[in-house]
Design a protein around this nucleic acid. Structure first.
Lengths: 189, 189
DNA sequence: CAACTGACTAAAATACCATTTCGGTCATCC
DNA sequence: GGATGACCGAAATGGTATTTTAGTCAGTTG
């Protein structure tokens, strides 16, 4: 069977289970039933292998996000659904959750970088969606980068941070209403 | 001269210069020209001494916040001025800056706790201001805790987090306009 | 004698070194 | 000639000796 594929699957498994730092190349080789050297014919080093796995995860996230978007739906409806889905993914997906944990506990640089990259991508995606909605006339012209950033940070605060200091999780209803009345409303043409 | 006062000043100096972990009680005693035992006649332990210093800083923050509030000013005007001032204080004040650094680098529990406490206090203060403004009829009734939290997190994101990922700091004008059009606007009766 | 001191203690942090682990290479093998 | 795993140096880890430090208290001093 495809050796590259075996390696990718083994690596995905190991990174998901143990995180970046705690998975060893020997470990991956063993799970994949290949010699360690073989890994290096496909990936230049551990970090590149990791990046390949993360890239696959990002694809999954994109698919998950697309799966909740409604063709022809409003900007608000779609951005809300997408961000909620992405932040759910963040908690649910084994690898993502593991990486967040490793970032908090170990501060592994490769992990920090990857997580920051994902957030940048999300913000930049929201920014794109804003610009599209502006040019289609649904939203007022605005500083799309700034709004995208504020939107993302707001969702992050309400979904991720809130429960760290409060004991009752916010309902989706509360979040929807709040942001609908504030940020989203102000964007409408 | 008042020994308690000497100790407080020495401690403030040392905590500001070296942070919590790196100031030793011997150090404080030496700066204060006092035997180490004397410190323990006024403060039960290092953490209590630290809390006393932080309490003084909180007083300063309160004063700084009050100094920019306008008697009879609007809710938006005053909350904006106060939060801007508090977040400026956060960067500017030697002790506060040092503690943020220590929290990031060392994760000293006593420091983590103190910083979390300050944020809780700020949010709860904003919450109070919202409730006042609601009962005076300036704002619509709302979930004050939630709005206070979102407001604080938004300012934090725009002032503190933004510059970590972008190379151009946001102007106060941009922040004012953005939040005025979104969160603040939606609160008005 | 009451406030103050600093030598003292136990516990925690740090420095140090021996040993192991790990990412990456490459001579060898199938 | 693609795959392998023994091998290498560097980095991490563990264990231990040493130092540092928060907190105490017997003794000193004004």
């Amino acid at each position: 069977m495809d050796r590259r594929q075996e390696i990718l699957e083994a690596a995905a498994k190991s990174f998901s289970l143990f995180g970046y730092k705690a998975t060893t190349m020997d470990q991956v080789a063993k799970i994949a039933n290949v010699g360690k050297g073989t890994i290096y014919t496909f990936f230049t080093n551990k970090e590149e292998l990791f990046n390949a796995i993360v890239l696959k995860m990002i694809e999954e996230m994109r698919a998950a996000s697309d799966s909740v978007a409604v063709e022809g739906g409003s900007f608000e409806q779609n951005v809300h659904a997408r961000l909620m889905q992405l932040l759910k993914f963040r908690k649910t997906h084994q690898l993502y959750a593991k990486l967040i944990d490793e970032e908090k506990e170990l501060r592994t640089p490769a992990v920090t970088e990857v997580l920051a990259g994902i957030e940048r991508e999300i913000v930049s995606y929201v920014k794109l969606k804003i610009e599209r909605a502006v040019s289609r006339g649904e939203l007022k012209p605005c500083n799309s980068e700034l709004i995208a950033y504020l939107l993302f940070k707001s969702y992050l605060a309400l979904i991720v941070d809130w429960e760290k200091t409060h004991d009752t999780e916010l309902t989706e209803e509360q979040i929807t209403t709040l942001l609908s009345d504030t940020i989203f409303k102000s964007l409408l043409r």
